[in-house]
Design a binder for these strands. Structure first.
Lengths: 137, 137
DNA sequence: TTTCTTAACTTGCGTTTTGCAAGTTGACTT
DNA sequence: AAGTCAACTTGCAAAACGCAAGTTAAGAAA
């Protein structure tokens, strides 16, 4: 299991953030939910990077425990659950935007999410607002 | 050793960023350099969180290989090396600023770097500019 | 000239986390 | 009664981590 928030609780705000989403997968899960509008376990499993099922379950639990996402039954599909970003999770939009902008500047290789990058470059405020409102950018 | 950039190279800008600094320690090292002005191995070892020496060595190598920092001999002290952020590294300032702002909003516990948080809240542009210019904010 | 000191690592080794594959659950559908 | 399917759980080998102890190299001290 992941390091729990607290073990390295130095009181530093960056350490706090890292204790919640500072691993290889959490931000990718958040990206799929915030940008691609993904809401189910099965869809998250099929993301671009191929997270394995046990790790995904761990991360979802950790994110839920830390107030980034919520989980509820899908009213339209008895066997499915719906994962959604909380306000706290959606407010990571600026962090995500800055990482995308930074990579856009420094990663010369061709990349996915060119559309998203352009959208952020064109109107960063709108990108963040839409995510903040629970919409796909 | 850390996952190398490439193994999960989905082409996503977020995945690119995570392959470079998406672990529990790299951003804390970058924080110490950018915000606290730390420049040596020994000072980095004594950071708030207590990174172990072998992990620190690994991360510094990884960050150097990925163009975030440089390493050179200290002209004033033959046995010391000076680590410095590159432009690419300093341009992570906005990412760091957003993480600090986010934590400031969502971490109710008392925290270190209150001064830095206030500085960013008061004048985010200045914070970023100073780091971009290689100065302590 | 031998010993000491010090910054920056490296090595060993036990513990923890990860990742792949296969198995489980439970309500509905056939 | 058997099949389906989303969402997990379990087992196990491989990789990464973390602590402690050891190494290196060159100038300073004795």
């Amino acid at each position: 299991m992941m390091k729990k928030a607290g073990k390295y609780d130095s009181g530093c705000p960056i350490a706090y953030g890292l204790s919640i989403f500072g691993d290889q997968w959490s931000l990718l899960v958040i990206r799929d939910m915030a940008i691609k509008g993904v809401q189910t376990y099965g869809e998250l499993l099929e993301g671009w990077e191929g997270i394995s099922t046990n790790i995904l379950a761990q991360r979802l639990k950790h994110l839920e425990e830390n107030g980034i996402i919520t989980k509820r039954r899908d009213p339209d599909n008895w066997r499915s659950f719906v994962y959604e970003l909380t306000v706290k999770g959606r407010e990571l939009a600026p962090v995500i935007a800055e990482i995308i902008l930074w990579s856009g500047r420094h990663n010369t290789a061709p990349h996915a999410m060119t559309d998203t990058l352009k959208k952020i470059q064109a109107d960063r405020g709108q990108f963040e607002d839409r995510i903040r409102n629970g919409q796909t950018p």
